[in-house]
Design a protein around this nucleic acid. Structure first.
Length: 643
RNA sequence: GAGCCGGUAGCUCAGUCGGUAGAGCAGCAGACUUUUAAUCUGUUGGUCGAGGGUUCGAUCCCCUCCCGGCUCACCA
């Protein structure tokens, strides 16, 4: 758009530069991958040091590590072995030390910390391992642990290697119990490296491997230590506690195998251990790094998983059927939003990425699935913000023979249930108050309920008998410096003004009710006052969390409301629905009295995981590409014409 | 789409009122047989986001662009 306005010459040179860059990038990107794709090539024949000077970024540290791979390969014959099977996870290893888990636990008490022998269960005591005669003996199973190296401490002829595996988040929690247990040893609690388990490597156990991994060893391609933070390793040994009481694996040689092996060498270094990775752009673009180094990131996504499991548990237990309906819609409907449009080549037809599953789910209720829910992605072609991602996860559920008031109770129960599942509490800290103190959301108390008209009277100061006077509404909005859409009719003005003035009052969970009918084309009119619909929205922390209503099941009314939407569209409103003839036909077969509810799952997770940004609860939030996109089809004349 | 702020070593950050840059950590070399942000000694490492302009000279000043953050608008 803005490029159009740029001078013709600079626009052309820009295109040419981009095209030239892409051509070279394509050529360069192909270069390093070809040897790997060649079927006759094996990894052992691949010279990693030759990867220099390609399109891939290569700094000094990375070149160094590529050379280390070749050194490992020349030593072991394989650069990337895949024959190490761990017996325990890190959390299982830590739990082995818990009281009552093992009959021999008493022997791991304080008395043996300084002077003891660790032996394999059932094996004789090897004389050469006894530090001194008569030292206490502890037994341990033979254990193999694998994980990513998060810290290396070499202290003379011993080394400590901390590894992290898939149980990183769990182990952080188990550490709390372990810290309590450390009191038994009169040791201070540890609060660093809580997600790792420690390997202890004494040089006298396996001097060759020790020197190879931790000491400079003139050995072909690289003569420095071969182990780096970030590598994946596998180690074999016996459980014991170090002098400082840290549960650790004493690496040993069994059957002449190395005590510690590099399973995957990391070419790129991990972020520095103390400050870690804090740049949000990198954290979101390279989520894999974020997850490795940031406990809070792992925790947020663990909670996301708990929310998803909790949702399914809640609805499954109440007889709802989970379904999947189309994500590509030939007809736009179910919400008011601008869509993404794509095209089906073989059928030569446009398709919309769905903005809501609503109309399909209600078709299923017509089909007899009286309780139904779907958790899936919606796509809306709108702005990106702390609360909006172009694709977001939506829960919608429908329940026959229920009203929107029944759903209010159910949603309240749902949120309370989820909060307990995720946080073990009815309250959650989310955001900050005006005065900077942590804001506590209380899902334990009954949710507040407020009618739009009451809110307008109370918070916008509009006289009760002037609520339907659009001039008064607009004038008041102007006074309060609140922007209303110029074409908006009365109902929309009321809702917009309400949302603006009510915001400060919508921090604790609040149901907003009595929406004007014209703002809700799919909702059932109130029986007594048909200008309203039986609908609520749930607000928490000033943002909309949920939207629900008793469903309109009168096909004649529905058809007319679709026609009103078409009229809006004709006037230029881009966020209206289309006339879905088949949906009306479905209603003609009979939709039982039904209430339905949509819940923004990402926002729900934000709240329950105490996150202020939706990007913290979506693994790969939408971001602009870092570099010009190289087309998979290999077009070497890419088009950059701005649309 | 608009405004403000930012992009400096692998990471976290200083800095230069214009004379091509520093620290900590990581890396490398040395010491250390129970460390845990290990410690101690020495040391390598940078197209200062990209392009253009002003200038004897630009990482710094000016312009344009790219990417991000925050606020606003649209929206859930």
């Amino acid at each position: 758009m803005h490029r159009r306005a740029a001078p013709e010459v600079s626009a052309r040179s820009f295109r040419e530069r981009r095209a030239a860059f892409l051509r070279s990038a394509l050529v360069q990107l192909q270069r390093p991958t070809q040897p790997i794709l060649e079927p006759k090539m094996t990894t052992s024949a691949f010279d990693h040091s030759k990867l220099d000077g390609t399109a891939l970024e290569r700094n000094a540290l990375m070149r160094q590590r590529l050379a280390k791979i070749d050194a490992l390969k020349s030593r072991f014959g394989v650069a990337y072995p895949n024959d190490f099977a761990p017996t325990h996870t890190a959390v299982e290893a830590l739990r082995w030390y818990a009281p009552g888990q093992d009959s021999d636990k008493s022997s791991h008490q304080k008395a043996l910390l300084d002077n003891f022998v660790a032996i394999e269960e059932g094996a004789p005591i090897p004389a050469d391992l006894a530090p001194s005669p008569g030292a206490p003996v502890v037994t341990s199973p033979r254990v193999r642990l694998a994980g990513r190296v998060m810290a290396i401490n070499v202290k003379g002829k011993v080394a400590f290697v901390r590894i992290q595996d898939r149980t990183a988040t769990q182990i952080s929690q188990v550490r709390a119990a372990e810290n309590n247990r450390r009191a038994l040893f009169d040791l201070p609690a540890r609060d660093t490296d809580v997600s790792t388990f420690q390997l202890y490597f004494s040089r006298d156990v396996d001097a060759d491997t020790f020197d190879l991994l931790f000491k400079p060893t003139p050995d072909g391609a690289w003569d420095g230590p071969l182990l780096d933070v970030g590598d994946f390793v596998g180690g074999e040994g016996l459980f014991f506690r170090t002098r400082t009481g840290e549960p650790s694996l004493w690496l040993r040689r069994f059957d002449n195998r190395p005590a510690l092996r590099v399973l995957t060498k990391a070419i790129r270094p991990l972020p520095e251990k103390f400050h870690g990775l804090s740049d949000k752009e990198t954290r979101h673009r390279q989520r894999y790094v974020d997850l490795v180094v940031n406990e809070e990131a792992r925790e947020a996504f663990r909670k996301r998983n708990l929310v998803l499991r909790g949702l399914r548990q809640f609805f499954d237990s109440r007889g709802y059927l989970e379904v999947e309906t189309p994500m590509m819609h030939p007809v736009l409907g179910g919400a008011s939003a601008r869509p993404f449009i794509t095209h089906h080549n073989a059928l030569n037809m446009p398709l919309y990425l769905r903005i809501a599953p609503e109309l399909y789910l209600k078709r299923l209720v017509v089909g007899g699935i009286e309780r139904v829910y779907e958790i899936n992605r919606n796509f809306r072609n709108e702005g990106v913000s702390l609360r909006h991602n172009p694709e977001f996860t939506m829960l919608e559920y429908y329940r026959a023979y229920a009203t929107f008031e029944d759903l209010m109770d159910e949603v309240e129960e749902l949120l309370r249930f989820l909060c307990r599942e995720v946080n073990g509490s009815d309250t959650v800290r989310w955001g900050t108050n005006e005065d900077g103190t942590p804001r506590i959301i209380d899902l334990g108390k009954p949710f507040q309920r407020v009618r739009i008209r009451d809110g307008l009277v109370e918070w916008a100061g509009i006289a009760a008998d002037q609520l339907d006077n659009i001039q008064v509404i607009r004038k008041r909005a102007k006074e309060l410096n609140i922007h209303l859409d110029d074409h908006a009719e009365l109902g929309k003005c009321q809702v917009e003004l309400f949302e603006a003035v009510a915001e400060p009052h919508l921090i604790q969970p609040t149901f907003v009710m009595e929406y004007p009918a014209e703002t809700s084309p799919l909702a059932r009119r109130n029986d007594l006052r048909p200008e309203f619909v039986d609908r609520f929205e749930l607000y928490v922390g000033k943002i909309e969390m949920s939207n629900a209503f008793s469903e309109l099941n009168d096909p004649v009314d529905q058809y007319q409301r679709f026609e009103m939407q078409l009229a809006d569209k004709a006037r230029g409103d881009q966020e209206t629905m289309e006339l879905d003839v088949d949906y009306v036909r479905a209603l003609e077969y009979g939709l039982p009295p039904t209430a339905g509810c949509g819940i923004g799952v990402d926002r729900l997770v934000m709240m329950l995981a105490s996150q202020d940004s939706i990007r913290e609860v979506i693994f790969f939030p939408h971001m602009r590409p870092e570099n010009p996109v190289v087309s998979a089809a290999g077009h070497d004349e890419p088009e950059f014409e701005a649309v």
